[in-house]
């Protein structure tokens, strides 16, 4: 493998890895605050994509504005789903809630397919996906750079939100000890609605960054969601830095392995998951024991 090719694969790995990392972050964020996995994450992201697509390609709204509207819509939908359904569900055990999100996912996927169609749509992007920059005789895809940089900015934004904002502090408190947080008068519901909304924004941003390079249809998020879950497990489910590490690691390994043994690419994420579960069940950066007694 030439150096050039090695670098090209690395860039692809980082690009795909940022998508996985964003999805993994949304999984971990939600898991930490509400101890639940949301199978509906993909449909929330689809909602953002379809709305963005409709606004910009059908109605001529500027792309950036459609983009923000898409993110906002999925945030609101996620917050509402938590507030009106998850919170009130009679079955408050993890399995019952998981099934509820699964039901939501199937229902929403059907609804979105009905509304927007199942055909492949060309999602507009901020840059043309085939354009490249030439550096000497080395060409680099503008879209790859955009995805990687946008992903990085979102992750830094999330870091400041979680570490420095008041609601971020409250999120961390709720994730560590919800009963004490409640007793202190912290509005636990507001915190949980916010974490559902932020998780939806992360997943939707991943979808919006991904869609222009492939085509937009109701199964857009199937693969990235599987990989994002895998990255979250590899990183350790409860660790936000772990999710980022897991995402990039999976993206990069996939890029190299896929280049040489394409058939192996699909199974790779799950081989990684199995290795982690066998040798390091708490993940690369996760906590060894569960904090909640």
């Amino acid at each position: 493998m030439s150096l050039e090719q090695a670098i090209r694969l690395l860039i692809i790995g980082i690009e795909v890895g940022s998508i996985y990392a964003l999805v993994a972050l949304s999984v971990v964020l939600l898991y930490r605050t509400s101890r639940v996995l949301n199978f509906g994450q993909g449909e929330l992201a689809l909602l953002a994509c379809f709305l963005t697509f409709t606004l910009t390609s059908r109605m001529g709204v500027p792309l950036w504005l459609s983009f923000l509207a898409g993110l906002a819509a999925s945030a609101v939908a996620a917050g509402a789903f938590y507030f009106f359904l998850m919170r009130r569900a009679k079955a408050q055990d993890p399995m019952g809630l998981l099934i509820l999100t699964l039901g939501f996912s199937l229902f929403a996927n059907g609804g979105l397919s009905l509304l927007f169609g199942v055909d492949n749509k060309q999602m507009p992007g901020f840059v043309d996906v085939i354009e490249t920059w030439q550096i000497g005789n080395f060409s680099i895809s503008k879209n790859s750079v955009l995805v990687a940089v946008a992903g990085l900015i979102l992750m830094i934004g999330l870091y400041f939100f979680v570490q420095k904002s008041k609601i971020g502090l409250a999120m961390r408190a709720v994730s560590q000890n919800p009963e004490v947080a409640k007793a202190l008068g912290i509005p636990v519901n507001v915190v949980l609605v916010s974490s559902w909304a932020v998780a939806a924004i992360l997943g939707s941003a991943a979808a919006l960054l991904l869609a222009p390079a492939i085509s937009l249809n109701p199964s857009l998020m199937l693969d990235p969601l599987n990989k994002g879950f895998a990255a979250a497990v590899v990183g350790g489910m409860t660790s936000l830095p772990g999710a980022v590490l897991g995402g990039y690691l999976l993206g990069i390994i996939e890029a190299y392995v896929g280049n040489f043994v394409p058939a192996f690419k699909l199974a790779l994420a799950f081989i990684l998951v199995i290795l982690v579960l066998v040798f390091r069940p708490h993940g690369l950066l996760g906590e060894k024991e569960t904090r909640r007694a």
């Binding site: 961390r172 408190a173 560590q176 000890n177 947080a181 007793a183």
Partner: peptide, 9 residues
């Protein structure tokens, strides 16, 4: 009871 620390904060 048990002080209710947010241990990682």
């Amino acid at each position: 009871e048990g002080r209710g620390m947010f241990k990682d904060l």
